[in-house]
Design a binder for these strands. Structure first.
Lengths: 182, 182
DNA sequence: GCCAAATAATCCCTGTGCTGATTATTTTGC
DNA sequence: GCAAAATAATCAGCACAGGGATTATTTGGC
């Protein structure tokens, strides 16, 4: 209704879903997940679990919300993932004595060991994924992905992670703070 | 453990998740979905529902499995989606008299109308998504996505779509083929 | 001090994506 | 022709992804 717009919708309709960026991204995501699960079957980690563990490794003792931000996971999912990882003995969740609402996450020895073991497999996934691309193509492809992710970061339902090196000149009004920045 | 592999895992571990292709693809996918839902709120369509409707529009009367293949959706999900779309009156599922196991899907008038209304919004999503990329970048980016999706199509848990024309009247071995390739 | 706003975490609900099992139907092997 | 294999669809179940409401706790206004 209300198709007052003078756009040649007919032409668009002929384009075909399989060349649309959104559709291609979805398929690539499916593939990336499948490759990850195959390569990391030994560690029994999903991509999200890996991402959260990795974030915990880089920011030990941070609270769930912060870690979720670093891994681009929403807080609901982060809570579930953290609970699962804690049950598997890979993560410890300690109530922050200074703010008893927050849970500070730290890797256990087992978690750190598993993460270490998984690194090679995870790297293999990335190599596999990009296998069909030539070297220069990879650079452009990754830069493009990053541009899209950064540009639309605000639009993502999944929260943003404090992306850039936070030492953006004068950091946030007054705080001389040492942002953690891994 | 058993890190008998002489790989500098230390170095990899420092790379940081946010530059890994898999992670970037995941974020781009989240973004694409979010943009789609925003732009298409009026039609109340999800990306998958749109994909299935679109496939039904292009191959009217095809069975669910075939359509699922064209949309790169697995059959379970296709069944759920089709049931929902039928309940909304957008799709008709008729038992194939020639093979009573199969359900042939066709758009209803309402479904075709909704699809038509959604086209402009869907196109806007794609434009939005690629907005941060320059024209030449887009070409390379899309080509790269397609290469990855095609190369790993077999590895995808989500089935592949048969890129071949359905009238495979033999032309499968010596094919002079007419790839659709719009 | 005390009530209200803000915040960390959790829970419930919907939808996606896939696996494996089950059912109905067709095709096939004999 | 009939039992066995194959196939289309469905269903049950798990994990992911996100939204919105709820709870516990802290902080801020007064």
């Amino acid at each position: 209704m209300s198709a007052a717009v003078p756009i040649p919708a007919r032409a668009m309709a002929e384009i075909g879903i399989e060349s649309r960026p959104g559709h291609l991204i979805r398929r690539c995501h499916q593939i990336a997940v499948a490759l990850f699960l195959d390569h990391c079957a030994a560690s029994d980690l999903t991509p999200m679990q890996y991402a959260l563990l990795k974030a915990a490794a880089r920011h030990p003792g941070a609270d769930q919300i912060t870690l979720a931000g670093h891994a681009a996971i929403d807080r609901s999912n982060a809570a579930r993932l953290a609970a699962g990882l804690e049950a598997r003995g890979l993560l410890r969740r300690a109530v922050d004595p200074a703010d008893r609402r927050a849970r500070r996450l730290t890797l256990t020895m087992a978690g750190a060991a598993l993460l270490g073991d998984a690194e090679a497999a995870v790297q293999a996934v990335q190599d596999d994924l990009l296998a069909p691309l030539a070297a220069e193509e990879r650079v452009i492809f990754l830069a493009a992905l990053r541009k899209i992710a950064d540009h639309h970061n605000h639009a993502s339902r999944a929260p943003l992670l404090p992306p850039r090196p936070p030492n953006t000149g004068r950091m946030s009004s007054g705080i001389k703070g040492r942002r953690v920045l891994f």
